[in-house]
Simulated scan of single mutants.
Amino acid sequence: MIRKSDVISLEPSRTPYDLEWRMFGFPIRVNPWFWLIMAMLGGRSLQFGFEVLLLFVLVAFVSVLVHELGHAFMMRRFGGIPRIVLTGFGGVAISGTGGRTRMERILISLAGPFAGLSLFGIVVGSDALFHWAETSRMTVFAYVFLYQVNLYWNILNLLPVFPLDGGQVVRNAVSRSEYTGLRLATQVSMVTCGIVVMYCFFANQLNWIPVDPLFTGVMFGLLGYQNYMIYQQLNGPRSFSDDPFRR
C-alpha cells in the first residue's frame, strides 16, 4: 500500500490497452506492462511449455490482485475511496483519503500481506484436506506457483524497505512526524536493500532457492537507489510548505 502522494511517478499513464473493471466497488486497472513483466519473471517456466508460463502469469495476476484488495478493503474501512492499479512490478492501492492515524496507516499497510498470506494458507490447507495439487500436471504447477508467489513475495513485501509495506510500517511506527518517519525509513531501507543484494549475490553463486536471485537483487538494488535519492532530497534545502512528502 502506498498513498497517492508517494506514488505519482509509479502509477503509469493510461493506454488504449489497459484492462479496466470494478470489483467489490473498487476501480481496477491493469497496465499492459504488468503482463509483460510477469511473463519475464516467470520466463523459466517456459521450459515446461507455453501453457505453464501462461499459468504463472495468471497466478501472479490473482495473487497481486488479492494483495491489493487487502489494502483496498482496509482503506475503505477507514473512510478511503481506493482504486487499484496493477503495474510493471506489482500493484498499488491508491486513496487520497483514509488512514488518518498512525495505527490506521499501519493496519492498511499490513492488510495486503495478510491477504496474500491468507491465500497461501487457503492453498496449503485445501491441498492438505482434498489433495488436489497432484491430480494433474497443471495442478502441480498451479500449487507450486501459488505457494511461491503468495509466501515469498509477501514475506519480501514485509521487509523494512520503503515504499514496500514493511517500509510503510516503519515510516509510521518510528515517529509521529511524517517527515522524520520517512527520513528514518529511508535509512533503514538502504541498509536492508544492501543486505538483500548481498544475499542475492551469494544465492546466485550457490544456486540457492526459493527466490530468483537475479530479479530480487536488481529490484532491491533499484529500491535502495530510490531510497537514497529520497534521503538526499529530504536532507536538502526545503521549507515545510515545499515538503513533497507532506500529506
Rank of each mutant, 00 (worst) to 15 (best):
S136T: 12
M23N: 01
M219G: 01
M219Q: 01
L86M: 14
A111E: 05
L234Q: 10
Q205R: 15
F89G: 02
G25Q: 11
L58E: 03
M75H: 02
L223S: 01
V30I: 15
S5G: 09
Q226W: 02
F201M: 14
G90V: 08
L146A: 15
V211G: 01
I28W: 05
R29F: 07
S241M: 14
V85W: 02
L129K: 10
L158R: 08
I37E: 03
P160E: 07
R176F: 10
S118Q: 00
S63W: 04
V149D: 04
Q168R: 11
F145T: 12
L159K: 05
I106D: 00
E134I: 02
L119A: 13
L206W: 13
S63M: 11
L119Y: 09
R105F: 01
F130A: 11
G25N: 06
F162T: 12
G125F: 12
R247G: 01
L53G: 08
H131K: 06
L214Y: 04
N207F: 09
M138C: 00
C200L: 04
I155S: 03
G125D: 09
A93T: 15
G98D: 12
R83I: 03
S63L: 10
V30T: 14
L107S: 06
M38N: 10
L69W: 03
F61M: 11
T216C: 03
V191G: 02
P237W: 06
L55E: 06
N207Y: 08
Y228Q: 11
M229D: 08
L86Y: 09
G99W: 02
M74F: 11
